[in-house]
Simulated scan of single mutants.
Amino acid sequence: MRLIAVILVLLMPTTALAQDSGFRLAVPAVLEQSGFMQHIVPRFSLKHGIRITRVADTDFADARLGAEGVSVFAGLGQVWALQHDGHAGAAKFANWLRSEVGRNTIAAFQKDGAALFTSDVAPAVAKVQISFEGDPVQGEKLSFAHCGRCHVINETNRMKGMGATPSFGMLRTLGDWENRFATFYVLNPHPSFTQVADITPAFDPSRPPAIVPVEITQDEIEAILAYVATLAPADLGAPIQSQ
């Protein structure tokens, strides 16, 4: 009898822990009726020994599936998120849904041979159209006047740029092209011969520019940016492949 009593005492903390880890999950009717929860919940509970009691989304619950919280899967025309109050079991459920096993389990649910849910819930990145306040027509003229001695601006001066200097089209392929054009006067070799009104310091009299200086204003730089934004990035072709 004493041995049985000791065994019961040892088992009590484990039983209490298992009971504490279970939680109530509020599930919207449309999600419950899809059959998806009957697919997901038993597989999680079998893996982790955590009992989930599904209730209506109007009932008291430790965690809720809906629009608020951590996004865990998408389906039925929306992204579903799990919200909880820090309950250990609910937190483990959220982590499991985003794990490789959970993601595979989500993808495995099908009806009539078609998957209804996906774990791919990354938000779509909107493509931002970059625009500048300057006049692109004026910007083209200024580009030829200030930059055309070194850079190929477009087809008009295709044969007149310096061979080692990138064309405007090539510069447009760079992810930070707008920053490069907006601050070109601090990028070598431009500081040695460029003056931007009210921005750059005067040249050191003991070190005059070796070529005719570029004297430009901030408004003119804005116009050049507006023009460059209209250019298509150069087609650099496919990367060279070695065999």
Rank of each mutant, 00 (worst) to 15 (best):
A202H: 09
L8C: 15
D20I: 09
G49K: 10
S192K: 10
A18M: 05
I130D: 13
Y185I: 00
R98W: 02
A210Q: 14
R2H: 10
A115H: 09
N179T: 11
E178P: 01
A223G: 02
G134W: 00
P166S: 09
F184H: 06
P213N: 06
F60E: 15
T183S: 10
I221P: 06
I4A: 14
F168P: 01
F60I: 14
N95R: 11
R64A: 13
N157F: 02
S119P: 12
V228K: 01
F184M: 08
G148A: 00
N104Q: 14
D57P: 06
N188A: 08
L174E: 10
E220H: 02
F184Y: 08
A114P: 05
T217Q: 07
D57C: 11
F73R: 02
L10A: 14
S71H: 14
P42A: 05
I7E: 12
S119V: 00
T183G: 08
C150T: 04
T105R: 03
A29M: 12
N104H: 11
G134T: 06
Q241M: 11
A108E: 10
R158W: 09
L142R: 04
A74K: 14
V72K: 04
L76V: 07
L174G: 10
L97Y: 00
L76G: 06
T58Q: 13
A108Y: 07
A61W: 02
S71N: 15
P13S: 07
V70M: 15
V121F: 10
G161F: 05
R180S: 01
S242H: 13
A56Y: 07
D20Q: 15
P191S: 03
G69N: 11
A91R: 09
F73L: 12
A26W: 07
V41L: 08
L236E: 12
C150W: 00
A56S: 15
